[in-house]
């Protein structure tokens, strides 16, 4: 039950480390062959323009889209959310387009607009949310989409069936709760088992 982490560019090492500490086998995905046999995939933060371009250049975009449409569990954070989004504001190029939301890149501006917040994400209370040149979700395009997080007056976390998207970076904190939520929803981590090294949110 290997989980893939898209490793074209960005903070893939951090996601792989969290999954590793949860005892999940991880594979870095750099070529389309690496998609074979994975049971879920994490799309990390980084630069969405770079990741989107490399997804195309290496022929990963189409097979990955097919897998996600076919039900492959996926969690995208920051740039990963942008890769998943069905629409990108101000006419940006769409990538996977499987998650029915509209996002706006760099909604908080440049690095001086980056910030840390704390809030509820799904059932997790006081989750530390690290926003770095983050995108925002400006519209939900399918009523089946569940809102998991709201920061200020902006939607910052959603779930649509097998797809999770977050505007912030759970992999940069020591709280593995969201990774666990993702794995459990995909049936990749037993409900009954307590995760090792998971700091339960206060």
């Amino acid at each position: 039950m290997t989980i893939g982490v898209l490793a074209l560019q960005g903070a893939f090492r951090e996601h792989a480390a969290v999954l590793g500490r949860l005892g999940v086998p991880v594979r870095e995905v750099r070529r389309k062959e690496d998609l074979q046999g994975i049971r879920g995939i994490v799309l990390p933060g980084g630069e969405s323009t770079v990741q989107g371009k490399l997804l195309r250049d290496f022929g990963i975009l189409d097979p990955l889209r097919d897998l996600i449409s076919g039900g492959l569990p996926v969690m995208g954070t920051c740039a990963g959310l942008i890769l998943l989004a069905r629409e990108i504001g101000t006419g940006g190029e769409r990538h996977l387009g499987t998650l029915p939301v509209r996002v706006l890149r760099n909604i908080y501006g440049r690095q001086l607009g980056s910030f840390v917040s704390e809030g509820r994400v799904g059932k997790l209370e006081n989750f530390r949310e690290v926003f770095i040149r983050a995108p925002g979700i400006t519209e939900i395009l399918d009523p089946e989409t569940e809102v998991l997080a709201v920061t200020g007056d902006r939607i910052t976390g959603v779930r649509f069936r097998n797809q999770f998207g977050f505007a912030f970076h759970p992999e940069l904190t020591d709280n593995f709760g969201l990774h666990l939520m993702f794995l459990r929803s995909a049936g990749l981590f037993p409900e009954s088992e307590t995760a090792p090294n998971v700091r339960q949110a206060a």
Partner: peptide, 14 residues
């Protein structure tokens, strides 16, 4: 510091 180091993490592999 966390945010600035975090941005650098996002540039990795690039």
């Amino acid at each position: 510091t966390e945010l600035n180091r975090g941005l650098a993490e996002m540039l990795k592999g690039g």
